[in-house]
Nucleic acid binder design. Sequence first.
DNA 1: CTAGAGTGTGGAACCGCTCCCAATGAAGGA
DNA 2: TCCTTCATTGGGAGCGGTTCCACACTCTAG
Lengths: 352, 352
Amino acid sequence: MKDFHGTKVTLEEVAQAAGVSRATASRVLTSDPRVSLDARRAVERAASKLGYVPNQAGRALATGRSDAVALVVFEPTTLLFGDPFFPRLIRGLGDVLTSRDMQLILLAPQTASDADRVERYVAAGHVDGALLVSLPSAHPLPARLASRGIPVVIGGRPTEADRFNHVDVDNVSGSAHAVAHLVAGGRRTIATVTGRKDVPAGQDRLRGYQEGLKAAGLPPDDALIEAGDFTRDGGARAMRFLLVKRPQLDAVFVASDLMAVGVLEALHQAGRRVPEDVAVVGYDDDPMAIGLQPPLSSVRQPIEEMGREMARLLLDAVHSPDRPPRKVLLTTRLEVRFSSAPVVAKPTGEAV
Amino acid sequence: MKDFHGTKVTLEEVAQAAGVSRATASRVLTSDPRVSLDARRAVERAASKLGYVPNQAGRALATGRSDAVALVVFEPTTLLFGDPFFPRLIRGLGDVLTSRDMQLILLAPQTASDADRVERYVAAGHVDGALLVSLPSAHPLPARLASRGIPVVIGGRPTEADRFNHVDVDNVSGSAHAVAHLVAGGRRTIATVTGRKDVPAGQDRLRGYQEGLKAAGLPPDDALIEAGDFTRDGGARAMRFLLVKRPQLDAVFVASDLMAVGVLEALHQAGRRVPEDVAVVGYDDDPMAIGLQPPLSSVRQPIEEMGREMARLLLDAVHSPDRPPRKVLLTTRLEVRFSSAPVVAKPTGEAV
DNA sequence: CTAGAGTGTGGAACCGCTCCCAATGAAGGA
DNA sequence: TCCTTCATTGGGAGCGGTTCCACACTCTAG
């Protein structure tokens, strides 16, 4: 229908076509109220007829803003695309960002030089601020960005918790609750497959597990702790180790649902029934958790809410740069399903 | 160590610190050879001391380029992050793009208004060109972008194949080969779980299946065709339908590995042994195909290569906009594993 | 010794947009 | 009727780079 014949049309041309000055045309397009109805209509008509789209570079140069924020994910690409955490997070971010007409730009630095590139990218003004997730402990990036005056919000618990805006899920209490639930179901030898130890969420979930045991008066046992890496295969591998080290275990708390899939497979292969022999609780409440065999109990994190909160915090920081850093802590909820059903007293009377 | 005290440093300041003009400083930073060694060194020192990063908006405005390209994925976010296709594609794109210092920007329009937003985003000069994948048939976006003179490369087969640069995998012959392989293994009642019918890849794989049957002289049977949607659950559902409609089937060609996972589950639940009772061939050769029970035969697409080729085509188009559209067709390879092992003549002599 | 050909360099003109500021004219009040 | 006030407008100065162009200078060759 319309053909813009490949030429970039500028504000000047729109103004000319509408018979007004460039300044007035600009006002119309930035929704400045001080424009007469006539002028407004003329400009709008001209703009749509010419297929005008404001040039980003020009606008950014004049305003000093880019109307975009970066989501910087420190994960190998394969994990990024495997982990259901990210679509949920992005949905939450999107809720807030699109309502303010802001673009989300995804950056996934894989190497140290990539991380430098991210710093330059952000410092070059491509974006107005950065959202950082899966940040390894003590990574220099947040401080670097902050020293350049770039607003930053961290998802998860940063190393220096008070220096930066951050939104975290209460991983410790979420995990402790999961353990308490297993204890309440009659389990006594509770193992855990942890996440990566270099990620705060992994550390916190382990701590919650330990606190849960302690609260229940159960003895700690390092052989019941096996490190996973947030992958399905890693979960299966960890479970196999646990079964070798502590064959008598009767429950496992797994630090992510993806790993829990591997755990269930490993248990199945080892001939253990879930939940009769071993109860399993996962973490994340991935949609697939319901579809697993048996349906997986899981700690539900408010990830969409986390995204929304991160976006809000960042937009606030962009808007008023001198506000001191804020911290938001979100609570989890345990979704109880069949994989952690309580032990039943056996008919034969062989009590536990 | 270094603290840039939150102020943006400009080229002017670098030039001043180095005792040269802005022009000379700019030459150094754009690797223009016509600069004396002294000046070059002075500018480089000043730049690194001040932590200078060129402002993107200023540069883009002056050069008319942004040194970034968009990857536009027409998929629901959940699929985008579930499908292992994308990390591989992105790796391939990255190979070429990072070597030319170009940024990749991921856009995943979910709605029609998102698609309009993508058009504006690209037209605003955020990027120098666009890579389009999973494009629904007859989507107006490529033509819209082309009419604005924006270089475009399509991954997969576009509706009007000759108007646009595109890189495609030969889905038809790949699928036909898979069927030929099943026939060679002694299978005679070969069903298929298709992909989404509105995606060219889905259409082509179905066509390849049909051609494969025809080439083998097997009769077509619509009841052996069941639509999936490229998800695991969709695959399981489709398989269940097929088992009801044609219980005697002895092979299934599945248009993606993710669906094949569901297919294997459904077969297992129905008590069919793979490959003894039913042979299965998937598509994509997802890394997990090897780990499945049994290891899954699969048509391997050269996805990384597709990404590289797409990036090359786009960069060429950015560089020389008047070149006529080109087409690249990549070939597949069948990875034969245990899930499609041939039927063996039974010891009892009950020949086929 | 001088014209001609290179080198490096700085001044200044853009790139497209926003926004300050001054100017205009109409409306309202004294 | 004249002066303020207010709404609307256009001129023009940037924003931070790149690059054209002219200039100064050095170095050869005639």
